[in-house]
Design a binder for these strands. Structure first.
Lengths: 204, 204
DNA sequence: AGGGTTATTTACCGACTAGTACAAATATCT
DNA sequence: AGATATTTGTACTAGTCGGTAAATAACCCT
């Protein structure tokens, strides 16, 4: 009895690469949102038939959730790396600059799928809407925890409000996602990042 | 031959109030987005049947556009009144505080329908998506024009970049819409507004 | 009262939705 | 080669989508 029995090479082999198919699905969800994406959109973009999609990913909802996981685990992701910068200011700086670069990048849909994937949506999308909402809130909680650590480290003044700083930064990052959808360029978003940083307390 | 023949009181009278029906439609679109809203959702909320909806509003797309017009013409709307404040700083202040109050108001869906009504959507929603995008961009252009006037008035330094100031403010306002969807309260948004204003140049 | 006009109700349309049953195809294991 | 396991393509389901045809109801005007 193998502990990884599901990886045993038996039966007809899958004719498509499951990771690139998921990439394609992510791109469609990103552009059209959960409600705006049909299974035909997905199968066409992924280059597979519906039974293959259901066998590999469960259903539309599970496929979406897996696509979001892929989105956040990408090498080009900027959020988690920025959190590890040595000072609070540098965290904010790298996060804002990373967002400016990433969200307007023409190599993929503009904005952020966590923001725009299921913002206002049907009841059928309630689960994925909540999943995205939780991700946004958790992101801000991570920022807040990082800024509280910064106060202990002394690179934020003791008077600083970590929660408000995190919410301010989250607000600008989420606003940048809308801006990117509006057609803003990375350079324009970088200017917004600079302005945002002017309100950010430096070492104290 | 009357120039206002359509207002002549002839034929069976409409059994519903067209303005309150449009209010109801707006609320549904606001909560569920264009793609996420079905005609059944609309007719149920509006308390009318489909033929009445089509006779009064055209179709789903035209109903949405009329709902957006209503949204922007509301007495509680904060955008245009804020533009008329005497200085650039006061414009920004009133706009941010108005947004903080309005977007988290529990009397209606949270956020802003112009932001979340059709952000990522199907091809069927392309027209309304573009209409909303144009409204967002036009709002920022109005802000920019107001700030350029402020430079002439001398309540913004000549070195200020009106375009970037407008985009920064637009970014925060749009971000606030997401925050309100995340469950942020008016008080929390007001704190974000205060931080935002710290980066805003005062009289110079 | 009767004609003209408009709104309402009911029932329907074809197209599309997410999801699946089933049989043929393709691999490994014995 | 044959048995077993899995994926594939085709064809289908029941339900919902946006939108409408047609008959009836309710009003004004003469």
């Amino acid at each position: 009895m193998s502990a990884v029995s599901s990886t045993v090479n038996v039966g007809r082999p899958r004719a498509f690469d499951i990771d690139t198919a998921l990439e394609k699905a992510l791109e469609v969800f990103w552009r059209k949102g959960y409600d705006g994406t049909s299974l035909s959109d997905l199968t066409e973009a992924m280059g597979i038939n519906k039974p293959s999609l259901y066998a590999a990913f469960g259903n539309k909802e599970q496929l979406f959730l897996k696509a979001i996981e892929l989105y956040e685990s990408r090498p080009c992701s900027f959020f988690l790396p920025a959190l590890e910068k040595p000072t609070a200011y540098q965290v904010a700086e790298h996060m804002l600059h990373g967002a400016a670069m990433n969200m307007a990048d023409q190599a993929h849909p503009q904005g952020c799928v966590v923001v725009q994937g299921a913002l206002s949506c049907s009841e059928a999308a309630a689960t994925v809407k909540e999943a995205l909402l939780n991700r946004r809130v958790e992101g801000e909680q991570k920022l807040r925890a990082r800024f509280e650590q910064a106060k202990l480290d002394g690179d934020l003044p003791a008077s600083a409000d970590a929660e408000t700083l995190a919410r301010y930064l989250g607000t600008v990052l989420q606003g940048m996602a809308i801006q990117a959808n509006n057609g803003a360029t990375s350079e324009q978003l970088r200017q917004v990042a600079e302005m945002t940083l002017q309100a950010f307390p430096r070492a104290g």
